[in-house]
Design a protein around this nucleic acid. Structure first.
Length: 303
DNA sequence: CCGCGGGCCTGAGAGC
DNA sequence: TGCTCTCAGGCCCGCG
C-alpha cells in the first residue's frame, strides 16, 4: 500500500481528528514493530496535544506540544483506522469505511490480532494502527531535530516540493551507473517513490527501467530533454494519485466508494501480458526482476 | 563510495 | 478441501 500518495492520503485523514486534540491514552499490544518502541513511549505521548500531522516522504510526523515529534512509518502492511466514540470506523490505510460491531462499540476499540497501537483522544476517538507484517515503525524525536533523525537524515527532496526538478536529478544522476529503476527507488535521490510509482512514471515517460541513470545527463552535467520529461512525469503521476486517494491493492474487505482508486489507472504495474496503453504502441507489458524486485514495463516504447 | 542480496514478518493466491 | 510454494507496496544492514 504505502508509497507517497497513500501516506499523504492517510495524513489527510488523520489530521482533522488529531490536530488540536489531546492524546489521553496510548495502548500498546506488544513491545515492538520493526524495532522496539522507544523508552517510555506511552508516558511521553499521553497527555500531550497534537500540534500538527505532517509528512516527509513515506513518514508521518505528528508534532506534540512537549517539543517531541511522533514519527510513524507504515512499512508494507501498516494502516490506520479512525474510530469515533460511537458509530462508524473509518479506515485510512485502504481508505474504506465500515460499521463497527456492537462489541467494538462497547469496548470502544476493536481488537484485531494485528492492532498493535491505539491512541485515544480527549474526544474519545480511537486511532488504531494495524500492521500484520510489522515492517512499520514508530519513534519519538525532538521536533527541532527531527530532520536529523536517523531515518530521515540524508533523504532527498520531496518530489512535489519546489526543490525537486530536472536539475536536481541531473546532479544526482551524473555518472551514475545504476539503472533508472534503482536510482528512482533510492530515497537519497528523491524521497517517497516506491515500486509502483517508479514503474508508472517510467512508462509514461517512455524510459526503460534498465537504462543507466547517467545517460539522461549531458557531458556538461545538465539535464537532457528526456530528464525534464521524467521530472515532470513523476510530479504528475504522484499528484494524480493523491487526487484519487492513492492506490488500494488486494483490498480484502468491505470497500465502498471511499477506497483509493489509482490502481485502476495503472498502465503497467501488475499488468504483465497486457497490451501497452501508450497510444500507437503495439507492445506487451513485461515483468522482469531488478535488484530483487518486480519491474513492469513495455520493452517496445520504453527506451 | 556503490550496488546487490538477505532478512525482517504474515497473508493471499496459485497450483497440485 | 488442504497442503506447499511463491510473492507482496519498504527499508536497514552487511558484504564484496
Amino acid at each position: 500500500m504505502p508509497e507517497l500518495p497513500e501516506v499523504e492520503t492517510v495524513r489527510r485523514g488523520l489530521a482533522p481528528v488529531l490536530e488540536g486534540r489531546r492524546i489521553v491514552t496510548v495502548k500498546l499490544k506488544r513491545g515492538d514493530l520493526r524495532w522496539p518502541f522507544p523508552p517510555r513511549f506511552r508516558e511521553r505521548i499521553e497527555g500531550r496535544c497534537v500540534l500538527s500531522v505532517g509528512r516527509r516522504a513515506k513518514y508521518l510526523l505528528a508534532d506534540l506540544d512537549s517539543g517531541e515529534t511522533l514519527l510513524m512509518h507504515l512499512g508494507m502492511s501498516g494502516r490506520f483506522t479512525v474510530k469515533p466514540k460511537r458509530g462508524r470506523a473509518q479506515n485510512l490505510g485502504e481508505f474504506y469505511y465500515e460499521t463497527g460491531s456492537e462489541a467494538d462499540d462497547e469496548a470502544g476499540v476493536p481488537d484485531g490480532a494485528h492492532d498493535h497501537v491505539t491512541f485515544v483522544t480527549d474526544e474519545g476517538t480511537a486511532v488504531i494502527y494495524t500492521d500484520p507484517r510489522r515492517f512499520g515503525a514508530m519513534d519519538l524525536v525532538a521536533t527541532d531535530a527531527r530532520e536529523d533523525h536517523k531515518l530521515l537524515r540524508g533523504m532527498g527532496p520531496e518530489p512535489l516540493g519546489n526543490t525537486f526538478d530536472a536539475s536536481h536529478l541531473a546532479t544526482a544522476f551524473r555518472n551514475k551507473t545504476a539503472p533508472l529503476k534503482a536510482a528512482l527507488l533510492d530515497q537519497r535521490i528523491v524521497a517517497g517513490l516506491g515500486n509502483i510509482y517508479v514503474c508508472e512514471a517510467l512508462n509514461r515517460a517512455r524510459l526503460s527501467p534498465k537504462r543507466l541513470a547517467g545517460t539522461l545527463v549531458t557531458k556538461a552535467g545538465a539535464p537532457t530533454e528526456r530528464l525534464e520529461v521524467l521530472a515532470r512525469t513523476i510530479r504528475d503521476v504522484l499528484t494524480e494519485a493523491i487526487v484519487v486517494g492513492g492506490s488500494t491493492l488486494r483490498d480484502h474487505q468491505t470497500v465502498d466508494g471511499a477506497a483509493g482508486a489509482f490502481q485502476e489507472r495503472f498502465r503497467v504495474y501488475d499488468r504483465e501480458g497486457e497490451p501497452c496503453p501508450t497510444p500507437g504502441c503495439s507492445g506487451v507489458i513485461r515483468r522482469i526482476v531488478q535488484s530483487g524486485r518486480s519491474t513492469f514495463y513495455c520493452p517496445r516504447c520504453q527506451r
